[in-house]
Each structure stands twice: as structure tokens, then as C-alpha cells.
Computed example of a mutant assay.
Amino acid sequence: MIEVSQFWRDPALPFVEARRVGDGRKVCYAAHSHESFSIGVITGGRSTYLNAGQRVEVGAGTTVLMNPGVVHTCNPVAGESWSYLMLFVDQPWLQALGFALPVQTWSRSPVLYQRLLQAFADLFDASVPDREARLAALFSGLPDLLGSSAGVSAEGNPRLEAAAAFIRAHRSDPLSLEDICAACGLSRSYLIRAFRQRFGLTPHGYLLDQRVQLARARLRQGWAIAEVAQEAGFADQAHLQRAFKQHLAATPGHYRNALG
């Protein structure tokens, strides 16, 4: 029987992480983002996919793509069962390949779907030779598999970008909304309204998401959960537990103890 949720990591491939979800009804998310480039396939059922304000229903055979920092959710349609596989790939490794972030957020290409299924099978089998080279070939060929050119969409108001950058730089600190307003030169009311329109989260929600991302990175390095809570700016371990489950649909302990 396929587990409800399982993370996968391998010390031989430290730049990539995978997640296999057998019953997506039990793995539901609040709006969140990732520091890594994320790509996955829906292997069964249907779900509602929201990425950067665009909503689409996706089903088995669909590939979904999430660029770093882009707020998104993917949850089941009316309680229907669904399953999926996800890859989270570190940016420095991709940049070394000359990889450009794609504009597309989803694809129904059967060729891409099959290539990704094979990539997951290769990753999960430590006996497969040249796993890194195979993965590099996949990402080098991704623009052709998507069928269009890659690129990064234009940024919006530079003061909003400055607010987001300030939050990222101070995510472990006890930030107030006034601190963020002072850093970017925007009024409280405008910042709240425009920030949500640009990033899909309020400034406080974005700060919490950034803290979860930092906690995820530290847990991946094997830090103790109590130390992670303090390092990432959470009030205590219970606060980390609640936020982590809300954003990643997994407990910190489940994530930290992932097997290769």
C-alpha cells in the first residue's frame, strides 16, 4: 500500500528532494512557496491548482511547475482522492546547467509526464547509474518538452519587491508591519492590499512562509526541532509545528526523518 506521504532524500544527490503522496485528501496546504524550483506530476484523481493567482483543475497526467518564491496551493476537488509526485531542485544546481525558469505553470504533455515518471523511478533506485546526469538531461531538455521558450515574468512595483526582500532578509527577526513599511516607504494600508495582490499573501503570511522555508532547510540539515524553532523565529516548538503542518501538510519530525 502506498503511504499517505513520504519524503525522499539521498546524500549522493543533495541538491534534490522528492515527495510521494498516495492520498492527497490527507495532505492539504495553505498558500505557500518554496525556495527551490518545484515540478511534479499528478498520478491519480483531480485537484485544484492555484499558482500566482491563476486557478486550474488538474488531473492524472498533468505536470505542474512552481518557480521559487511563487505562492501556490494544490488541493483535492470536493474531497476526491488524488495522488502525486513532486521534485524540489536547488537553484544553484539548476543555474550551473544554464537552466532558465519557465513561464508555464502546468502542462498536459504526455511526453513530459512520462519523462518525469521515469526520472522519479531513476531517483528512487540507488542502483541506477548516472542519476545526476540523467536528471541534468531532463532539465536541460525541459524547454523543448514544454514546447515554448523559458523566461521569468516581469516584476511589479519595486517598493513591493523591496518589502519582500526585507522580509526575506529579516525572517528570523521579530518583524512588525511598521518595520516593513519603514523599509520600503509604503503606507500600512497600501502595503497590505498591494502585497497580497502581488505575492498572494499578506506581509505577515509571507513572513510566516519564509520562516517555514528556513525551518525546512535546517531540518533537512538534521537540526533538532527545538533549535530550528528558535533559529527560524517561531515563538516555540508548538508554533513551528502548527505552521509547518499548515504550509507543508507534514510535521517537522516526519519531514526531518525522511529516508533516502
Rank of each mutant, 00 (worst) to 15 (best):
E155K: 07
G156K: 12
G156R: 13
N157Q: 12
P158N: 00
P158C: 02
P158V: 02
P158R: 02
R159W: 10
R159Q: 04
R159P: 03
R159V: 01
R159C: 03
L160A: 06
L160Q: 10
L160C: 06
E161I: 08
A162V: 04
A162Y: 03
A164C: 09
A165E: 03
A165P: 07
A165M: 07
A165W: 04
F166V: 03
F166Y: 14
F166D: 05
I167Y: 05
I167S: 04
I167G: 06
I167E: 07
R168L: 15
R168Q: 13
A169I: 03
A169Q: 09
A169K: 02
H170G: 08
H170N: 15
R171D: 04
P174E: 02
L175K: 02
S176V: 07
S176H: 10
L177C: 01
L177T: 00
E178Y: 11
E178H: 12
D179M: 05
D179I: 04
D179P: 06
I180D: 00
I180N: 00
I180C: 00
C181Q: 02
C181G: 00
C181N: 01
C181W: 04
A183V: 00
A183P: 05
G185I: 02
G185T: 01
L186A: 00
L186H: 00
L186G: 00
S187C: 03
S187P: 11
R188D: 11
R188T: 04
R188S: 04
R188L: 11
S189P: 12
Y190E: 06
L191E: 05
I192W: 11
I192Q: 14
R193S: 15
R193E: 15
A194K: 08
F195K: 09
R196F: 13
R196H: 14
Q197C: 06
R198W: 06
R198D: 08
R198P: 05
R198S: 09
F199Y: 15
F199S: 02
G200W: 01
L201Y: 05
L201P: 05
L201M: 09
T202G: 03
T202R: 05
P203Y: 07
P203V: 03
H204E: 14
G205N: 09
Y206W: 12
Y206A: 00
Y206D: 03
L207M: 10
L207Q: 14
L207Y: 09
D209Q: 11
D209G: 09
Q210V: 09
Q210H: 10
Q210Y: 06
R211Q: 12
R211L: 07
V212T: 00
V212Q: 00
V212C: 01
Q213S: 14
L214R: 10
A215D: 11
A215Y: 07
R216Y: 12
R220D: 14
R220I: 10
R220Q: 14
R220C: 12
Q221G: 07
Q221P: 08
W223L: 09
A224L: 14
I225W: 05
I225G: 06
A226K: 13
A226R: 15
E227H: 15
V228R: 05
A229E: 06
A229C: 11
Q230V: 14
Q230S: 14
G233P: 10
G233Q: 08
F234S: 13
A235Y: 13
A235R: 15
D236T: 09
D236V: 11
D236L: 10
